[in-house]
Amino acid sequence: MTASWQPTASIETLRERARLLAGVRAFFAERGVLEVETPILGQGGSTDVHLVSLASLARTDKGQRRLWLQTSPEFHMKRLLAAGSGSIFQLAKSFRDGEIGSRHNIEFTMLEWYRPGFTLAQLIDETTTLVANVLPSFAGPVVHYRYRELFHTYLAVDPFTTSIETLRTLAAERGQMSANALTEESRDTCLDLLMSMVIEPTLGQNELSVVLDYPASQAALARRHQDADGEWVASRFELYLNGVELANGYDELIDAEEQRLRFSEDNAERRRLGLPEVDVDEQLLAALDHGMPESAGVALGIDRLIQLALGKARLEDVLTFSTANC
């Protein structure tokens, strides 16, 4: 991959990309979901410990301010929901520093939409219908899995009850890390490694796989509930096709106090890990204080879906210019 002025996608691919995006817009227009455009820059950023945000210094009417480049359009879109927008969708440029690879680019396009009044199950249906629309040749079934069940099937451990020592040993071994690389690591890091290295490659083979009931500690901005086994789990789903994670959906957290707590827990974890803290989005919290309708929302990596639809090996094959030659 040499640096070049040339686009990384062929012009023919860009035509196909435009056709697929027109299909996505038609899908939402038919369902009465409003297309919106929210700012890429925000005064608050994502506190998510595992995302690295880019920021920019801007001269604003309040003087020089650090503005964050969004890692997803979530916060602005939730403020629209609180303001009474009803169902909305967006194709939004998003930024995650350091994420470069065959399925990652620092700057990428997120398809994100919110459905006030939808249950998570209704949103899963809508998401899989959309994916099937974009991939007309795909005829496979939609199969639901519980996070716990996947760990039982592929690793013979329980993500909730197996001891941390056992998980560390197993994760280092199956994840091809050195034996003591994980001795200090949390349960979630071990589970993330096993999920990424062992389970994900098996998902979405001739089917659309929906994964449900993630551990409550991995709820991010989703609500939590008790599952059939009495475990606290995240009200969240992930969608996989061909071993590729395509979408992440939530029964959205709308409780301002709980949201405030999760932001401050994230920043506390950031301090513990020596990572920079991120300015909390006070305006999102104010919007939740005002009241956001109960909603289900999902973020889908549209570049990846286009990559799969067109059978391209690398994400950059469907981007005009990848970060490497932007």
Binding site: G101, S102, Q176, S196, E200, A220, E238, E245
Partner: peptide, 15 residues
Amino acid sequence: ENELVKPGKGQAFNR
């Protein structure tokens, strides 16, 4: 070769 692997949410790894 170096490939980024990352679950939907959570810790990223490099294989």
